[in-house]
């Protein structure tokens, strides 16, 4: 019964299904195909079963990239989410400054990703960059191309600059949706600023925050262009994250089989995380 109702709907989404099939599913199948074969040339390939997966899972280079990736994504979430909430709380609620601050906040989001990398590459250069020169002038020995800690900090700061706005904008929209009566009631109940945040704002922001965390996780987990332009993954492999490692493998070394196996593992990690989120959000709806 339920199924018949939606037949027409299925027909309507068919074009999209076809496009997705060509643009995503077929390449995915190709990747799956590659991941189980050893390819020497167009006509010489051998079936190797799960060999590549085993190799990939044992590859210390990849372990390194994965660990760095996890640390990076965790750092991104730990910095950007609280910072985003905090700044959203500071934004004016009404008046002429609302639109000004919203436009200013949206600016970094409009910059193309590789340009972000270029901007920071120049900005942070210890010889001519504003930030680099300044840091050195106050006595810090800062050089992101030579020192791995400096490189990490630079990549993180760049990402915070680039993406915190998204969290702020989402939280701001969430905060605006809270009716005034809640704040009034809290004042009458004698609630402190912290209690207002803890018992009104945070619970009401729950849905928005889950979306923000999900988006920031996915974006940061597949980050590529910015660190590639900024540090090229260096110094050494200090800022080589999963996607860059993958590119090196597939395009640089032309190890198509292991690269394919690796990208499937990569894909599964993101899928798993997104699924956990999906369940959380679904569960939340039921409670609410």
């Amino acid at each position: 019964m339920e199924k018949r109702e939606y037949q027409w709907a299925w027909l309507m989404v068919l074009p999209v299904v076809l496009v997705v099939a060509f643009s995503a599913i077929m390449p995915l199948m190709t990747v799956v195909n590659y991941s189980v074969q050893d390819i020497f040339g167009p006509d010489s390939r051998f079936f190797v079963g799960t060999e590549w997966f085993k190799e990939v899972l044992r590859d210390p280079q990849l372990h390194g990239a994965l660990i760095r990736q996890i640390i990076f994504s965790a750092a991104v979430l730990l910095i950007q989410i609280p910072l985003g909430i905090g700044l959203a709380l500071c934004l004016p609620k009404k008046g002429p400054w609302v639109s000004v601050s919203l436009v200013l906040l949206a600016l970094p989001l409009l910059v193309p990703w590789n340009v972000v990398g270029t901007i920071w590459q120049v900005f942070a250069r210890p010889d001519v960059g504003l930030a680099g020169v300044f840091l050195n002038s106050i006595g810090l020995d800062y050089n992101y191309t030579g020192d791995s800690v400096d490189a990490w900090v630079t990549v993180l700061v760049m990402d915070v600059w680039h993406w915190t706005s998204l969290v702020i904008l989402l939280c701001y929209a969430g905060l605006q949706a809270i009716p005034d009566a809640f704040y009034q009631a809290a004042r009458i109940d004698g609630a402190s600023r912290w209690a207002v945040f803890r018992y009104i704002e945070l619970p009401k922001l729950k849905g928005v925050l889950l979306i923000a965390i999900l988006l920031r996780f996915i974006f940061s987990f597949r980050i590529y262009a910015e660190p590639f332009v900024l540090t090229g993954g260096g110094p050494g492999n200090a800022t080589t994250f999963l996607s860059q490692r993958l590119t090196t493998m597939a395009v640089g070394q032309f190890d198509l089989g292991p690269a394919a196996a690796f990208s499937l593992v990569y894909f599964l990690i993101i899928l798993l995380f997104s699924y956990v989120f999906y369940l959380t959000i679904l569960n939340m709806d039921r409670e609410g």
């Binding site: 009566a181 009034q184 009631a185 009458i188 109940d189 209690a195 018992y199 619970p203």
Partner: peptide, 29 residues
């Protein structure tokens, strides 16, 4: 300000602290 006036107020739409139990809501003030 309202918090120094010793008043209670009931609004048009129920204002409750969602994450708290009924007891905690009543105990809040």
């Amino acid at each position: 300000p309202p918090e120094q006036r010793n008043i209670g107020q009931v609004f048009q739409f129920p204002v409750i602290y969602d994450t708290m139990s009924v007891f905690d809501n009543l105990a809040f003030p």
